[in-house]
Nucleic acid binder design. Structure first.
Length: 481
RNA sequence: CGGGACGUAGCGCAGCUUGGUAGCGCACAGCGUUCGGGACGCUGGGGCCGGAGGUUCAAAUCCUCUCGUCCCGACCA
């Protein structure tokens, strides 16, 4: 038998040799997305959109479990709205697209295409909220937003991207903080359990927080080239927006007060993280839970086309009750070709069925993450497949976690960070930190990194890697996408 | 936004230096034989050479501009 390694889909660069080219190539060849005629915008093709739909299904379930409802707010925002919160406009103004004409006439006030929806949502909340009895407000929306990015990359950074943004309003700061942390935890579980992506969780330094937030929590994934990828954020907005948009409520004590808000979001960027983390030289590789196709059945005819197809169709029918299944009955390709094709497309589990298998009442199974094939009986196939997929999901996570853990480097000084970088040790640099914003910024600047997140756990009393004063938290640095 | 590279058939490329009938491989269509890790034979279709100007009897080829993509850096989810 031919060595498995030789049979790769042609024309995919090696991931290990040039991850950027590999990344673009697997997305295009895997038919996840394509470039659009508009600079910086991407077209998400059905196979890629299926990934997003799976993400939506999972997150919608989790959001609803935690009491949220979906709504929808317009994509056009009066320019003046963005300007109401000082930090907010400063953060987003350089990136906005502006509509100045409509119906052939100049608009009296230009409209911003939303880069994020805090401002328009707050303007509505101001209308809806009167009493503490109206709180909390827990609304999420699925939409696209536009940020005029200078350089773009498929999924990771595009001028328009899809996301969800939750916007909540609370009576007390404690409640808002609880919500912010709760949603961060939802995101962490989403990344780790659903997408098999290990992440750091923690708080952003003030320099890195959301424009207009009191503070921001983040999940930070690590890409195979050692670069960090901010993959989801949960912001505690305090009362900044409430004050800017005049959202007030009458509390139990008959005193008018400003409420406390949060917002949190995950975008299609995270699909980029899935691709980079799990893919390999053979192409895409999806963890079963998020895979557009979980099981592909490849029939092997050997002169018994009808009998084999009939059995394969029956197996598909049974498995389709629980799984996303594809039966590749195309005549024009040989099995070997199909194997490579579906591996390139990242399907986690393949079942082969031929005349010999029918005789033995079995199928041959092959996992995307391990070499070798196993035979499994057709009886109770659904249960066997479920176990296999669970096992594959765990192996995806374990593999990613091993990489992740081995790329967190401790550094007790700026020099040590530089030494790590110089020695080619790319990843997260874990430092003890005094808590000073200035100190963090200086470390970032000197080492050409950015601060990624502050671990919530306290240090055991070390010294700050920046200034040498007493440290109280751990701060991670890294290079980011 | 800087620095580099590249736009020729759906994809990957050659042709450009030295201007003169637009090519190769894969893919695609038809027929037949094949099918447990990318099968083969025969026949066939497909291009304003990214776009706009210019030079020339003549431009894929030379010149100018422009648009787009990729890679490497600075900013962002």
């Amino acid at each position: 038998m031919k060595n498995k390694q030789e049979g790769f889909v042609k024309e995919i660069p090696k991931k290990s040799e040039n991850i950027s080219e590999w990344y673009t190539s697997v997305i295009l060849k895997g038919e996840l997305a394509d470039y659009s005629p508009v600079r910086g915008c991407m077209v998400i093709r059905p196979y890629g959109y299926a990934v997003w739909e799976n993400i939506q299904d999972y997150l919608n379930r989790r959001f609803k479990e935690t009491g949220h409802k979906n709504g929808y707010f317009p994509m056009f925002i009066p320019e003046s709205f963005l300007k109401k919160e000082a930090e907010h406009v400063e953060g987003f103004a350089p990136q906005v697209a502006l509509v100045t004409k409509g119906g052939g006439e100049n608009l009296t006030e230009p409209l911003v295409v939303r880069p994020t929806s805090e401002s328009i949502i707050c303007s509505m909340y101001a209308k809806w909220i009167r009493s503490y009895r109206d709180l909390p407000v827990l609304i999420n929306q699925w939409c696209s937003v536009v940020r005029w990015e200078k350089t773009t990359r498929l999924f990771l950074r595009s001028a328009e991207f899809l996301w969800q943004e939750g916007h909540t309003v609370h009576r007390t700061p404690e409640e808002a903080e609880e919500e912010t942390e709760k949603m961060l935890e939802v995101y962490r579980e989403f990344a780790e359990d659903f997408l098999a992506l290990p992440v750091l969780t923690g708080k952003k330094t003030d320099g890195e927080k959301f424009a207009g937030a009191d503070h921001t929590y983040t999940i930070e994934a690590l890409m195979p080239d050692g670069q960090a990828l901010q993959s989801g954020t949960s912001h505690n907005l305090g009362s900044h927006f409430a004050k800017a948009f005049d959202i007030k409520f009458l509390d139990k004590d008959n005193v008018e007060k400003y409420p406390y808000q949060t917002s949190w979001g995950v975008s299609t960027r995270i699909i980029g993280a899935i691709i980079m983390t799990h893919g390999d030289d053979r192409g895409l590789a999806f963890p079963p839970k998020v895979a557009p196709v979980q099981v592909v059945i490849v029939p092997i005819f050997y002169g018994q086309k009808e009998a084999v197809l009939e059995k394969a169709a029956e197996i598909k029918r049974v498995l389709s009750e629980k799984f996303r299944v594809e039966l590749d009955d195309r005549d024009e390709y040989k099995p070997g070709w199909k194997f490579n094709e579906w591996e390139m497309k990242g399907v986690p589990l393949r079942l082969e069925i031929g005349p010999k298998d029918i005789e033995k009442n079995q199928v041959v199974a092959s996992s995307r993450i391990e070499e070798g094939k196993i035979q499994i009986p057709v009886d109770n196939l659904s249960e066997s497949v479920e176990k296999l997929l669970d096992d594959i999901q765990n192996k995806f996570y374990a593999r990613a976690k091993t990489f992740f853990d081995s790329h967190i480097f401790e550094a007790s000084s700026r020099e040590e960070i530089k030494e790590h970088i110089k020695a080619g040790r790319k990843g997260f640099y874990k430092t003890a930190w005094c808590g000073s914003e200035e100190c963090a910024e200086k470390t970032a600047e000197e080492t050409s990194t950015t601060s990624r997140c502050i671990e919530r756990r306290e240090t055991a009393g070390g010294l700050c890697a920046g200034c040498g004063k007493a440290a109280y938290k751990y701060l991670y640095f890294g290079r980011a996408y």
